[in-house]
Design a protein around this nucleic acid. Sequence first.
DNA 1: CTGAAAGCGCTTACAG
DNA 2: CTGAAAGCGCTTACAG
Lengths: 337, 337
Amino acid sequence: MGESQEENKTLTIADIADALGVSKTTVSRAISGKGRIGSETRERVLKYIDAHNYTPNVIAKSLAQNKTYNLAVVMPGDYELIDLPFFQNCIMGIQEIASSFDYDMLLTVCNNADVTKLERIVHNRKVDGVILLRSFMNDVQVEYLQKKNIPFVVTGSSNYKGVVQVDNDHRAACRELTSILLMKRMKKIALIGGNEEHVVTQSRLMGFKDAFADSGTAVDESLIYMNLDNPVLLDGKLDDIIKREVDCIVCMDDAICMEVLYKLRREGISVPDQIRVASFYNSSMLETHDPSITSLDFDAKELGMLVCRTLLDMIEGQKVQKKTLLGYEVRLRESTK
Amino acid sequence: MGESQEENKTLTIADIADALGVSKTTVSRAISGKGRIGSETRERVLKYIDAHNYTPNVIAKSLAQNKTYNLAVVMPGDYELIDLPFFQNCIMGIQEIASSFDYDMLLTVCNNADVTKLERIVHNRKVDGVILLRSFMNDVQVEYLQKKNIPFVVTGSSNYKGVVQVDNDHRAACRELTSILLMKRMKKIALIGGNEEHVVTQSRLMGFKDAFADSGTAVDESLIYMNLDNPVLLDGKLDDIIKREVDCIVCMDDAICMEVLYKLRREGISVPDQIRVASFYNSSMLETHDPSITSLDFDAKELGMLVCRTLLDMIEGQKVQKKTLLGYEVRLRESTK
DNA sequence: CTGAAAGCGCTTACAG
DNA sequence: CTGAAAGCGCTTACAG
């Protein structure tokens, strides 16, 4: 009796203990690998588990250990379409690492203005840690998480003290690309940037200025146009920029770059003959564009993987590096010939 | 004594019971609203909870109720870039509904060939139900979920029996758009489709054929090109199609449509003067394209919301409609003038 | 209307 | 090396 194998009845640790004539403690130890246990006993338990296709109840484990084996990933709600591949690849990277450690990923969408979704998740104790996919100069999410003292990592850079961050080295990348443009004897370079509230915008701006400093040239501040993530505003400014007959337009991101290219086409201005164009970011759009557009290239998936690994380390209580910078590549293409 | 309010100590139901001099049972009932309880007692408990910022421990609740308050959303791993906004909007819709019912969304990426990630989640009992963002003619995920007898809903259509599905009415939409093209006296219409394994591809094909049947015209099967999601293959076939001097090219999705437009531009063939173009799907790419491209428009966010609502109903044990069809809009633009 | 008690399926001091 | 027992924070028959 009791020997029948009902496939549907989900096994518990108690069932296994009964079947094997050992205690639940022993079974638990065999599974977790913690605590002393005879290797022969362990083998027996493991073999039984394997044969009967047992999986521990993660919820019960969670309650006992006060851990959820879940990560929250916060995606900004106001993304540009063109940024989607970046987030997506990043998420793929996170997923890959998380699941390999038996963690799951709880995705939520938040605007910087509205953190209630994040609050709910944290307050409900549904996650062991949080990944922010974007950060702001004034970041309500960061402040909330710091206050709550919950492990979190920012994808990108943060100006807040003590925040663990993993980023590509945007500053160095923009510096290098800008230097190349300067070396190609472009004098009047216009820089068009988006939301100044994004930390990455600031990094890019600094990299741009670094290059000028390196070359001993003064930056013409009047050629730096910021906060032009709105297409209508941008369009107006572009009329100015075109009138000023710049050698090159450098766009801080691809959403802006696409608008610029669209405008130039409408105005019948040819790239690169009449004006050069480059972008500080790289979507596949730019690569297949005609002409192809010079840009910077970052590996979003790798970034996601590292962010996730860092967060898991923090959760396990290991020391982690405050700030990790990943590489980049400069893609010189036809638009700056 | 015991009156000090330590902000950091997380309250439990037992603390509240103690403080109020009632039993845990009573507190639980006041919170859940289940079971008989005096309204005065309930008020007292609720007031205390509110004042002390108590949130129930969802994990403990999960264990007791054998429910997780989590949903899994499975995103295909082999998506086209251009489809990303669809998935994203869908996910936004799901999120919105889920969180309003205090459910969270566990996102995972799976190829049809590899369901191990999904299996892990289900096996670990981390979710109460699953949403599949895409389905296949032969769908390992569907088969797995059916076998496991776990509530799930498919976004899109499924040919499997008994699967709950929410979809836009692709067939009717394609029928209507095709009918319009036929009425505009286009005779030779080439249809270019992607992966025949996707259920939606079949629906679109049927809609296309419906329109011909309606108009009493025979479909020229030789003008129907399928499985051309590979750009290189597509390019070759397009040479054929161009040679055959069709009036119009209808693309089953926007990835294909972009390739077609790219090819036509390279060949110096003007749209719509020399050839008309339409797409059975609508990305923002087509709208801003020059010329703008006639296409079908679906509301992905609405779809996501309804899918999620349906799944939640299933989880709560309510009867749900086997198949729900949502509307669409035909966007006639310059490319079929 | 209310409460004592058992239970959900694990983990983990503690004792041996 | 192994086990009995308490505990994680809820829910829910059952009894009153």
